[in-house]
Structure formats: structure tokens, C-alpha cells
Simulated scan of single mutants.
Amino acid sequence: MAWNVFKLCTGLKVLGSVMILVVLSVVGVSYYAVVITNYLPQVMKGGSATATSLLVLILFHVLLAMLLWCYFAVVFTDPGRVPQGWRPSSSEDDLEVQSLPLDQTPETMTVTLSVPTMAQSARIRYCRKCSQYKPPRSHHCSVCGRCILKMDHHCIWVVNCVGAHNYKFFLLFLLYTFFETTLVTVALLPQFISFFGDLEEDSSFPSTLATTFLGFVLNLAFALSVLGFLIMHMSLVAGNTTTIEAYEKKASARWRFDLGWKRNFEQVFGMKKLYWFLPLYTQDDLRRMIVLQGLEYPLRSDIDGQEF
């Protein structure tokens, strides 16, 4: 059995609280460097650079508002918990549970279901730690101490698990973070270049130069790292898989939850395009799309023959 590093990392919750302060600190440094130090004074001075400076300030505040909205949506939204007493839907005659380990999950059990979306010979798992059945695609998080619906990973940056109910918010947080850090990097690039110029002719205070330098370096580092993370997660969304599932599934087998990139995308972001870039869902999507509840998922075998 693989060693579970999280058994010795109960301090991750405390570390996560520190990470929230780190995020807010980076936001504070960026705000001071872009708004207070550079572009707001340029707007107040007037001149030919006023329009450009005003545009930078507007984009900065809009992206910052979206970034913080998505971030705290991930932090405060429960990723999805298994309802108390949840059991797989099946007929009593068909419920024949066999204690046979399947794949790499020793807690997996086989049962024949009558639910169309689960197909025949579906695999029903039981969590011994929570003493309850595990819905499809759920996993037990040792940090949170419970099973998470469609768990992707436990993120210390948000002090929360990323699962069925907040995965969209997490992706949008990555997206707006990339846009914001890229904007700040480009906006501070002229000041960063001048930092290495003739400092004797620069009338700026040393603290202002240091903040500009620090803001540029931090935002450049975040932009590059978040871009790689964003590309990875968008590829996971396109294949309708999570980080855990991408690690566990066999490379040779066709992923049974892959319904085509369009349907896969809608299972995360919803069907209303106007809400794709907002950290919320419409009531219509919540009512019509069972997958957003995190308990049932259609399989590829259920829609074979349909056009993708």
C-alpha cells in the first residue's frame, strides 16, 4: 500500500491559513506597486499617458475583483460532502455485494445496478474511515477527514479541497490570477527596466523602487507557474477527469466518463455561456444537470452512437 503523506500533515490546515495571508500579501504588494506608486500618480498628473494609465487601472481593478471573488468562492464553498446515509440506487434483488478488490482500491465492491447512468456491473465503493458508501468519483481526504465528491486535490492555497461543487470556481481563480499577474507584469515592466538604469537620476524613494521590483518579480513568477497549472487542469477538463483519476486510471483504457470535450466542459462550467466566467451556476443548470450535485455521472457507454 502506498504511504499516505497526509497522515503526518495535519498541520496543512494551519499552513493553508498562512497561505491565505500570502495571497493577500501578494495582492497588497501588487496594488501598491501598480496603483499607489505608478499609475494613479500618472493619472493625477495628466498628460499623454493619462488614457493608458486609466485603462491599466480599470483592467487591474476588474481582474482583481474577479480574482478575489473566485478565490473566496473556492475557500468558502464546500467541495461536496456525501449525504448522511447515502446508498447506491439499486433494486433489492440486484444488490449482491461481493467483497472483491478491484483495480487498486481495496475498498471497492461490485454490484449490479438498475440505474441507466451507472451502467451494468458498476463499481460501488465503501469508505471504512467514514463508514459509509462512496459515490462514484469520490475520494477520502485525510486532511479534511471525510470523503469529497469528485475530489481533485486538497489545495493548501485555499485551505479547502477542490471537488464537485467548487472545481469551476478553482479554475476561474487560476484563469483570473493568470490574467491579473500578466497585466501587472506588463504594467511594471518599464519601471522594472528603469530600476537597473541610472539610479542617481531616479527621484523615486528606495521603498518605492523596492516595491516595484518585488511586485514585478512576484507577479512574473506567479504568471508562469499558474499558466502551467491552468493548462494542466484545462486538459483534465477536456478529458472529464480529475488529478486523482488521471493518476489512477490505466493509460490503455478509454476513460468511461469521457463524453467528448463539449459535454465534458459543460459538466464543469454549466450550459449557460453567460455564466461560464462567473463563480456561480444558474438555478436552471443546478436543477437540470445532475452531475453538478456530484453523486451521479453519465458514462460513455450510455451515449455511444450519439454525435459529439
Rank of each mutant, 00 (worst) to 15 (best):
Y31G: 00
Y32D: 08
Y32G: 05
V34A: 06
V35G: 02
T37E: 06
T37S: 11
N38Q: 10
L40S: 09
M44T: 13
M44D: 10
M44N: 11
K45N: 08
K45I: 06
G46I: 04
G46Q: 10
G47Y: 03
S48V: 07
S48F: 08
A49P: 03
A49H: 15
A49Y: 12
T50F: 04
A51F: 07
S53M: 08
L54K: 07
L55T: 14
L55Q: 11
L59V: 10
F60C: 03
A65T: 15
A65D: 12
L67K: 02
L67M: 09
W69Q: 07
W69L: 12
C70F: 00
Y71F: 15
V74I: 12
V74H: 03
V74A: 04
V75Y: 09
V75Q: 07
F76D: 01
F76V: 07
F76N: 07
T77D: 03
D78S: 11
P79Q: 06
P79K: 00
R81M: 09
V82L: 07
V82M: 09
V82D: 01
P83H: 10
P83D: 05
P83Q: 05
G85Q: 02
W86P: 04
R87F: 06
P88Q: 06
S89E: 14
S89M: 13
S90R: 14
E92H: 04
D93N: 13
D94M: 11
L95C: 07
L95W: 09
Q98K: 14
S99P: 09
L102F: 14
Q104E: 15
Q104K: 14
Q104C: 14
T105G: 04
T105M: 11
T105C: 12
P106C: 09
P106L: 05
V111P: 03
V111M: 13
T112Y: 08
L113P: 06
S114H: 13
S114N: 15
V115F: 13
V115D: 13
A119Q: 14
S121L: 12
S121G: 15
S121P: 03
A122H: 15
R123I: 15
Y126V: 02
C127W: 04
C127T: 07
C127R: 01
Q132M: 14
Q132G: 03
Q132P: 00
Y133M: 13
Y133E: 06
K134T: 12
P135Y: 01
P135I: 03
P135S: 03
P135V: 02
P136K: 01
P136W: 03
R137T: 07
S138L: 09
H139E: 02
H140A: 01
C141N: 08
S142N: 09
S142Y: 12
G145I: 03
R146G: 00
R146P: 00
C147V: 01
I148S: 07
I148H: 05
I148A: 04
